[in-house]
Amino acid sequence: MANKFRWGKSRFITDEKYQQLKRYRVRPGDVIITIMGTCGRCAVVPDDIPLAINTKHLCCISLDQNKCLPDYMHQYFLFSPAARSYLSAQASGSVMDGLNMGIIKEMPVEVPSIDRQKAVVTNIAELEIATAALHSKYKSNLQDIHDLRQSLLQKAFAGELT
């Protein structure tokens, strides 16, 4: 679960249809959260997004970035125990879990000062880098163990171990 913005299959609409749906336009810095199926996955819309319209499976949140940073909100949705608990408790549906805009709007959000938000974002980014480095080291160590096992087995079957 990457929780990073990734393009799926592109779909195109006519200019006429765009005029009908333009209030659902997604802009750079918006925070999007899944509200159907895999509820609670989220991402920040990148700066290089072309003209795009939201789908019914996403809630798009446009923030006053003087009060709340998109990366902070993104991380709040992902890592805040209060947010995770709230979203889990509210997600319900007969066929699949679902949220709606009203539930998202009612979610209590702790919004510290911008400086504190920047610090939280920086700390989490540093932890993600450290975690990725540990993951890479772990995979490398597993490969080394596998290679050693194969080497020992080869020597054992060749009668080279004493």
Rank of each mutant, 00 (worst) to 15 (best):
M1V: 15
M1F: 13
A2F: 13
N3K: 12
F5I: 11
R6V: 15
K9T: 15
I13Q: 03
D15W: 08
K17H: 06
L21Y: 05
L21T: 01
R23M: 08
R27C: 08
G29Y: 01
D30P: 01
D30T: 07
I32Q: 03
M36H: 05
G37F: 02
G40E: 07
G40V: 03
I49M: 07
N54W: 03
K56W: 06
H57P: 02
L58R: 02
C60R: 15
D64Q: 03
K67E: 06
Y72C: 04
M73C: 09
H74Q: 06
S80N: 11
A83P: 05
Q90H: 12
Q90A: 15
M96H: 04
D97C: 10
G98S: 11
N100F: 05
N100Y: 07
I103S: 00
I103H: 00
K105A: 12
V109L: 14
V109P: 09
V111R: 09
R116H: 12
V121G: 01
E128Q: 12
I129T: 13
I129N: 15
A132F: 07
A132Q: 09
K137D: 14
K139N: 12
S140D: 13
N141P: 00
L142S: 04
Q143N: 10
I145K: 07
I145L: 14
H146A: 14
H146N: 11
L148F: 13
S151R: 06
L153T: 13
K155D: 09
A158S: 12
G159N: 04
T162E: 08
